[in-house]
Design a protein around this nucleic acid. Structure first.
Length: 415
RNA sequence: GCUGGGAUGGGGUAGUUGGUUAUCCUAGGGGAUUGUGGAUCCCCCGACUCGGGUUCAAAUCCCGGUCCCGGCCCCA
């Protein structure tokens, strides 16, 4: 038997309907914020992802050489391609550029719950705007999207990369030595961070105060631990978010990113119900354009793990509206099939979803089938009806029937 | 990369101290019903993850692979 590659999924019609529905919810929300959709290739030059994330990620990529000897990879994320596209084709657009995207990504990793080798990301980038207003705009979009989806149990955590960077600099850690430490702090691996800090000559009191900072979590009041510009900046972002109806944001100075190009705020959303793979959204502000050879430009963006968030919604028992088939045409006998075909075509041309028996079923079986495919109404077409220029329309839920003149049938379904 | 559990018709399952034709439910196709679905009855369709080994005999025991579920590592 042919089987699917490891870590990939097939989506059956019910699941696909669900996914498209929620995809639409996200798109519409992004559009209400003035973001416009972009799309980039499924594969890119491997170098693009290496430039963003370092040489080690090649291990996790579907990387190969094409027939021209070029190093190519299936995209593992969409931020780098989006910024590449901005540098290539949108850098002269009026600022800020507001772009969103949705598509599949690929990572060669061990699959587990909420982690697949082919997965879907929805993300947005606001390019060319700096300041708390831009940051708040992006976070508000992410929060509104999750709210629109209907997910109840989730948390938004806001941090700022500068808090720890400044503190580390003040205790004598050079810029190029920070990434390693930040990575440990991000994971709250204090026992691993301590020896590194000690070896750099950082005293115990400073180490404890750094660990204390990383562990600072709470409402806006905890910003008192962050005096100066950054504290003010974060307070401003929170105030703007509050004004935009996003009040449930937690300040968490332990939200860190190890990578150098993060420049300011960082934020995450998580759905605790998901267990090990609970992060459903990650974002922040960064300077990536220059990494790809463009002019420096402020950017804030985020990416939502579409599969994970759907998983979380499923655990909460969320139901999406079903698309019902409006009409199922039941030809009573073979001699009316041509007329029945004419009727089904007229409904379809009017934009009404309509199906017709193709299995040569007898009437009783055809009605049964109409019921099992979830048709709202059956349109019974028989010699008796046709001789009077009508069809019998049966409501499949109530069983009520009425005769409708053939030339009024389309209107009957439109009203 | 490490580690625990698992895999029986399309879906859900019984059977696993080796022993007839592998159980049941559901879904699907047809009939009972020559113009009225959801009920009932009947018929049909359809499975032991793959490869090797032990044995007179393997769904069942052993070894290896694949895939799935969970945890660790990683997570741009």
């Amino acid at each position: 038997m042919a089987q699917r590659p490891r870590g990939t999924r097939d989506f059956l019609p019910d699941e696909m309907e669900r996914r498209r529905h929620y995809e639409g919810v996200l798109r519409r929300r992004a559009e209400t914020f003035g973001f416009r959709e972009i799309s980039t290739p499924i594969f890119e030059e491997t170098e693009l992802f290496v430039a963003r994330s370092g040489p080690n990620i090649v291990e996790e990529l579907y990387a190969f050489e094409d027939k021209g000897g070029r190093g190519i990879s299936l995209r593992p994320e969409l931020t780098a391609p989006a910024i590449r596209l901005y540098v290539n084709g949108m850098s002269n657009d009026p600022k800020p550029v507001k772009a969103f995207y949705f598509g599949q990504c690929f990572r060669y990793e061990r699959p587990q719950s909420g982690r697949y080798r082919e997965f879907f990301q929805f993300g947005a980038e606001l390019i060319g705007g700096s300041g708390p207003e831009s940051d708040a705009e992006v976070i508000a979009l992410a929060a509104a999207m999750v709210r629109d989806l209907g997910l109840k149990n989730y948390k938004v955590r806001l941090g700022h990369i500068g808090v720890l960077r400044d503190r580390l600099a003040s205790v004598g850690i050079p810029g190029d030595g920070m990434a390693e430490i930040l990575q440990k702090l991000d994971k709250k691996a204090f026992d691993e961070a301590r020896p590194i800090l000690e070896s750099r000559g950082v005293g115990d009191a400073d180490i404890e105060s750094i660990f204390g900072l990383v562990s600072t979590v709470g409402g806006p009041e905890v910003l008192s631990a962050v005096p100066g510009e950054i504290g003010e900046y974060m307070g401003r972002v929170l105030a703007l978010l509050d004004a935009m109806g996003v009040g449930d944001v937690e300040v968490d100075l332990g939200v860190v990113r190890g990578l150098d190009y993060y420049t300011g705020i960082v934020f995450e959303m998580e759905a605790p119900a998901l267990g090990a793979e609970k992060q459903i959204c990650g974002g922040g502000s960064y300077a990536l354009a220059e990494v790809f050879g463009g002019e420096p430009v402020f950017t804030t963006g985020f990416a939502i793990g579409f599969d994970r968030i759907l998983l979380a919604m499923e655990k909460e028992g969320l139901e999406h509206p079903r698309k019902a088939l409006r009409a199922y045409i039941v030809p009573v006998s073979d001699d009316v099939r041509v007329e029945a075909a004419r009727i089904v075509a007229s409904l379809r041309d009017a934009g009404i979803s309509a199906d017709i028996d193709l299995m040569d079923r007898k009437m009783g079986r055809a009605l049964k089938h109409a019921s099992s495919v979830g048709a709202e109404k059956a349109v019974i077409v028989g010699a008796k009806e046709l001789s009077q220029g009508v069809a019998t329309v049966r409501d499949m839920e109530s069983g009520e029937q009425s005769e409708v003149p053939l030339d009024c049938l389309v209107d009957h379904f439109l009203s």
